[in-house]
Design a protein around this nucleic acid. Structure first.
Length: 259
DNA sequence: ATGACAATCAGAGATTGA
């Protein structure tokens, strides 16, 4: 099965670009972030007509995650456990029924800027909750993955201009350490399992001609449990999507699994 | 040091993003 994660930056503004991409690239499962819509306003019929089941976890104006799937889904759940007072829609899970069942977690990790400050505190606290859920997925010993916009630049090689991000919440040492702690539990970062070296990005700012200068960062990731990593056949980024009409500032990142 | 760009809600301009 082919699974992509894509921060679409608003479903209302991206319905055309998202539809074209689904038609051309044909993921079995699309994990979406920043739908920026309440569930009632998500154009679900539009995507159901393309053969996708649609599951959304939205809120007004900001954040919001979704899963579109051509394969059957079971046990869809919403929200990251660990803080009943957290009202931000950033987490969705489902089990995809392919040749093997794979637990899929879609996430939109808080940006955290400005740092330091309450938004950065929220980011780090959210990552602690993520680590708890990640450990549970590992303990299940089932094929599972966590994919989405992590808002983490893992290493300097993941930015065209690492010095520009030195004081940013996406690259601060505490952010990177929290990401690494999760990886070190035993996850495989799918893209880096296949491709090494600099120059691979998943986000280019709308400002200052970042796309034309290839001034990007790599912040959208797939983390696989060992049982899922055993199924990994390929992982890649689809940068050309950034050059289309009315694009998101992110592009899709993919895994292909023998599942 | 600032703003550049885009989206949302609202119906102007503040807020958020990364």
């Amino acid at each position: 099965m082919k699974i992509a994660t894509f921060n679409i930056n608003g479903i209302k503004a991206r319905i055309g670009a998202l539809s074209d991409w689904l038609d051309e690239s044909a993921p079995d499962v699309a994990i979406l972030q920043e739908i920026k819509s309440v569930d009632e306003n998500f154009p679900r019929e539009h995507f159901e007509d393309k053969g996708y089941s649609v599951h959304t976890h939205g809120q007004k104006s900001f954040n919001g995650v979704a899963i579109l799937s051509k394969l059957p889904l079971e046990d869809v759940t919403f929200g990251l456990p660990g803080d009943d007072d957290d009202e931000q829609a950033r987490w969705i899970e489902a089990t995809v029924m392919g040749k093997s069942a794979v637990r899929i977690c879609g996430l939109y990790l808080p940006n955290g800027n400005p740092a330091p400050g309450p938004k950065y505190d929220y980011k780090l606290a959210w990552m602690e909750r993520l680590q708890t859920r990640a450990a549970q997925l590992l303990a299940s010993e089932e094929p599972a993955l966590m994919a989405g916009d992590y808002n983490i630049i893992p290493q300097d090689e993941d930015a065209a201009r690492p010095e520009a991000w030195r004081e940013d919440a996406l690259a601060l040492p505490d952010s990177r350490a929290a990401f690494r702690r999760i990886l070190n539990l035993g996850f495989t970062e799918a893209f880096r399992a296949r491709t090494q070296g600099p120059g691979h990005y998943s986000f280019w700012d709308y400002q200052a001609g970042a796309w034309n200068k290839n001034d990007g960062i790599r912040i959208d990731h797939f983390l696989l449990t060992p049982q899922c990593a055993d199924l990994l056949e390929n992982s890649w980024i689809e940068p050309e999507v950034r050059g289309r009409e009315k694009p998101s500032d992110h592009v899709p990142v993919w895994v292909e699994l023998a599942a």
